Computed example of a mutant assay.
Amino acid sequence: MAVAPPPTTDAMTLLDYPSRFDVTRWPLEVERFLQGTANSFHRSILKNYYRHLLLELSGYWDRIIVPELTVDHPVYRVGDRGTVAVLEGRDAVETFYRETYEARVNVMGARTMNMCVEDFGVTTEAYWTHVVPGQYLIDHRHDVAADTDAHYLMNYNIFQVFAYTSDAKLIGERIYVDSASYTYEKLAPDEVVTPDQARSELAPLLARATLS
């Protein structure tokens, strides 16, 4: 018997999201959050965050670690399954984004999330997913059997902190995955969102995601 969640607005308790993945859902939620934010400094941070995420999802990996968005020496900490990868400097962080794009796993997003912005930056906790080819799933999780001709939603809980300077440039990210939360959903062919489809669907959002 299903137990109803207690009265709350906590996204990670409610887990209220459509069953079909929509690559525009998360960006549009961020855009609405930005529109509801009055503090001018927080708006500048969110504009940076919003443009960054759209570039990443659209596969424009070489446009993220640039002077107008990111400091000269960004530092990322990415924790998953008992290890933490520390990425320091432009080359290391840019390689992280390039390899994500080349593996064709840049189609991703929060299916639902908690989000806040403060002077230090942006914090999110999300039920996250990537659209991944079956072979990537096998390479990523050797304990998982997958159809190499199919695509999957790779889901997990994630906590992210995005730190910004006093002039709203990204310093780095601290990303921690709940390794016990991984689940996998095999997609029907008509449910797969390819990187090319994502780039096309996100183009109107990216066009209006300016820093001004």
Results as ranks from 00 to 15, higher is better:
110 A>F: 14
188 A>Q: 14
112 T>K: 05
104 R>K: 15
25 R>V: 06
121 G>Q: 04
58 S>K: 01
164 Y>S: 03
10 D>N: 13
179 S>D: 15
40 S>V: 15
65 I>C: 13
133 P>T: 15
148 T>Q: 12
94 E>C: 07
28 L>F: 04
140 H>W: 12
18 P>F: 00
211 L>A: 05
36 G>Q: 01
43 R>F: 11
42 H>C: 00
125 E>A: 06
39 N>S: 07
91 D>S: 11
133 P>C: 14
83 T>S: 10
144 V>N: 03
54 L>N: 09
24 T>L: 02
107 V>G: 03
125 E>Q: 12
140 H>C: 07
179 S>K: 15
206 L>C: 04
109 G>H: 13
53 L>G: 09
1 M>W: 11
179 S>I: 12
161 V>I: 12
38 A>C: 00
188 A>R: 15
117 V>F: 10
176 Y>K: 01
135 Q>W: 11
137 L>Q: 03
22 D>Y: 13
188 A>V: 14
50 Y>I: 11
196 D>L: 14
78 V>D: 03
76 Y>R: 14
190 D>L: 14
195 P>N: 01
168 A>F: 06
156 Y>T: 09
46 L>K: 11
45 I>E: 08
64 I>F: 06
67 P>R: 01
167 D>K: 10
208 R>T: 06
174 R>T: 13
123 T>K: 00
195 P>H: 01
159 F>D: 05
76 Y>M: 10
165 T>I: 03
212 S>V: 10
186 K>T: 10
143 D>S: 06
2 A>N: 14
190 D>K: 09
152 Y>W: 10
163 A>H: 03
146 A>G: 02
165 T>G: 00
172 G>E: 04
23 V>Q: 06
17 Y>A: 06
199 R>E: 14
159 F>Q: 12
99 E>S: 02
128 W>I: 02
92 A>K: 09
206 L>E: 08
204 P>H: 12
89 G>P: 00
127 Y>A: 03
184 Y>F: 14
107 V>N: 07
116 C>M: 11
163 A>R: 04
196 D>R: 13
37 T>Q: 07
189 P>F: 08
63 R>M: 06
136 Y>N: 00
64 I>A: 04
114 N>P: 04
131 V>M: 07
40 S>N: 14
55 L>W: 06
21 F>L: 09
153 L>Y: 11
59 G>I: 01
202 L>M: 05
179 S>L: 10
110 A>E: 07
31 E>K: 04
189 P>E: 02
89 G>I: 07
17 Y>S: 05
46 L>H: 10
168 A>V: 09
69 L>S: 01
29 E>R: 14
